[in-house]
């Protein structure tokens, strides 16, 4: 065990350089491919995937404080409806509506957070599930404001220049980098250190002076603000909002992205978001099969690779690099 640790340490400098190389290669690929493949179908899926990395990363934040939310889509919806209403009914400029679409869910989270974040385990799961359903009911029933079950149509693009799929792809890319960057920065900062401390040992963290509830509420509000921004970007991309899009399914979707990708690090939800956005689109023809595959993949991951796709990838790389070093 000691030797593996030493090996890991001597390799770490090289690993971080390799990591930067991978990041740079990835960035170039993300920027360049649409110049060669100007295919609306692929651009559409890629844009969706980018937008979902925001929501998945934001739910990752909530998971990191030790809470499993099944109501995250409610905040996605709050962002979407806010942006849709402000730009259509009130003709606000997109930039202002976009900011509001982050603020509204964040403020709602600041209000409900101090109540729900006191609950632990399954109680938190149940209350967030209920909250999600209540918000969906409000979207459906408050017809004069939300357009009821039909929702709101003809949401304008954020800017005339963003009317094309390719332009929106680049816009989504920039926004996803910014939002996921915020999450990454929080987790890498001192705040991230104490977020992990809270999850791993709440009582111990508290006895070191960490204000547990305040930390949780703050992180929860930031997460809900971020997923609200995704809601706005998504609404202006698909040009409509409707209650069905923010139902329990969608909350589960965001959660499954985290589970399948892996909950150990921020890479997990990013991989999960891309995987789970692309997979159903490519399986459009087999709707029945799609649900089935979805379930099978989820069960396999939970049973055999609790670290998700990220761990699967890591194991594969390790296996390729040193096939004999399997005793660790």
């Amino acid at each position: 065990m000691m030797t593996t640790r030493v090996l890991a340490m001597s390799a770490s400098a090289g690993v971080s350089r390799a990591r930067w190389a991978w990041l740079a290669a990835g960035a170039v690929a993300l920027l360049v491919w649409p110049l060669f493949v100007n295919e609306p179908f692929f651009l559409h899926i890629a844009t969706l995937a980018l937008l979902y990395t925001i929501g998945a990363a934001s739910l990752h934040l909530v998971l990191r404080i030790g809470h499993l939310s099944l109501g995250h889509a409610a905040f996605l919806g709050l962002g979407g409806y806010t942006s849709a209403l402000l730009t259509t009914a009130l003709s606000w400029p997109f930039a202002a509506a976009f900011i509001a679409s982050g603020l509204v869910p964040a403020v709602v989270a600041l209000i409900v957070g101090p109540i729900v974040l006191r609950l632990r385990g399954v109680y938190f799961v149940l209350i967030t599930f209920t909250f999600g359903e209540v918000v969906r009911l409000v979207f459906t029933e408050w017809q004069s404001l939300t357009g009821g079950a039909d929702g709101i149509f003809r949401i304008p693009p954020p800017h005339a220049l963003l009317a094309s799929k390719r332009a929106y792809y680049y816009f989504a890319l920039a926004m996803a980098v910014a939002c996921v960057g915020v999450v990454a920065r929080i987790l890498a900062s001192q705040t991230g250190r104490f977020i992990d401390a809270i999850r791993e040992g709440e009582r111990l963290a508290q006895s070191s002076g960490v204000p547990i509830l305040r930390f949780k509420v703050m992180v929860f509000a930031i997460a809900c603000g971020l997923v609200g921004l995704q809601g706005s970007l998504l609404a202006h991309f698909i040009t409509f909002v409707a209650p069905g899009a923010y139902a329990f399914n969608e909350s589960l979707n965001l959660l499954v992205m985290n589970v399948i990708g892996g909950m150990g690090s921020l890479t997990g939800p990013l991989v999960g978001a891309v995987f789970l956005t692309a997979l159903p689109e490519f399986l459009r023809g087999w709707v029945e099969l799609q649900r089935f595959l979805y379930g099978v993949v989820l069960i396999i991951v939970m049973l055999f690779v609790p670290g998700g796709l990220v761990e699967l990838g890591r194991r594969t790389i390790a296996l390729v690099r040193e096939p004999e070093g399997r005793d660790a």
């Binding site: 705040t191 250190r193 104490f194 791993e200 002076g209 960490v210």
Partner: peptide
């Protein structure tokens, strides 16, 4: 009562919330 899966240094760093944060 310690953070089992963290290094000793990280454990103690987490104790320094009031001075470090």
């Amino acid at each position: 009562t310690i953070y089992q899966e963290r290094t000793v240094r990280e454990n103690v760093r987490r104790g320094a919330f009031t001075t470090a944060y």
